[in-house]
């Protein structure tokens, strides 16, 4: 019922359009920097680059429903961490082309262990996969250049809880799980800064 009400809310908005918030299907591409804190028994900071895409339907006045991916890389000690935040969410237009957004989803996260002398290396796995939920939000602003290019900046934050660790190695083209364990969950708090453009 709540979801039906939400749909009704989205579909019923009908007011004047502005050029940076056009009704229709849109795809955004961006990239930037991220800073993450990995919390297990202690805290470890990692930072790196990320690139993000969001596509969604923008309704006329204030709302958009969207799906996004944020592919983040971070280096922590000798381990490269690659996580992909696959999310769905809503975006709300604020005044002066500012916007806020909220999302939930899943975040398959990979720890590359090639150079890491931890216990996983002994299992013969080349990477460790975690999965778990993610929740987050963002705040940003659209701009329009004289040649009609729309670009944006956005600051964002997310929280991931990763568990279900799987050690994986590739057997030809097929990934093979060599062990699976429910270790203590890793909690990841991330902050991102992104700049990007409207693709269409």
């Amino acid at each position: 019922m709540k979801f039906l009400l939400l749909i009704f809310l989205f579909l019923s908005s009908a007011h004047a359009q502005e050029r940076t918030w056009k009704e229709g299907l849109h795809l955004f591409l961006g990239g930037g920097l991220n800073l993450s804190n990995y919390h297990t028994t202690g805290d470890t900071l990692g930072s790196g680059l990320h690139f993000k895409t969001d596509f969604g339907y923008f309704f006329q006045e204030k709302w958009a429903i969207e799906s996004g991916s944020n592919v983040k890389f971070a280096k922590v000690h000798d381990t490269l961490i690659w996580d992909t935040l696959l999310t769905i969410g809503v975006r709300r237009r604020l005044r002066d082309n500012y916007y806020a957004r909220a999302f939930i989803g899943q975040a398959p996260t990979v720890f590359f262990t090639h150079d890491s002398p931890d216990l996983y290396k002994r299992s013969g796995s080349s990477r460790i996969l975690y999965s778990g939920p993610v929740i987050g939000g963002g705040y940003g602003k659209f701009y329009q250049t004289p040649d009609d290019t729309v670009w944006f900046w956005e600051i964002g934050g997310s929280f991931q809880k990763l568990d279900n660790a799987k050690g994986v190695r590739d057997k030809g083209t097929v990934p093979e799980v060599v062990f699976q364990t429910n270790r203590r969950a890793v909690e990841v708090y991330s902050a991102t800064f992104s700049v990007g453009i409207l693709v269409f």
């Binding site: 979801f3 989205f10 229709g24 299907l25 429903i65 769905i88 939930i104 899943q106």
Partner: peptide, 15 residues
């Protein structure tokens, strides 16, 4: 999460 995804796909594909 799944309900949200279904709603998103419904709106998306209906366009």
């Amino acid at each position: 999460m799944r309900c949200g995804l279904i709603i998103f796909l419904f709106v998306f594909l209906s366009r």
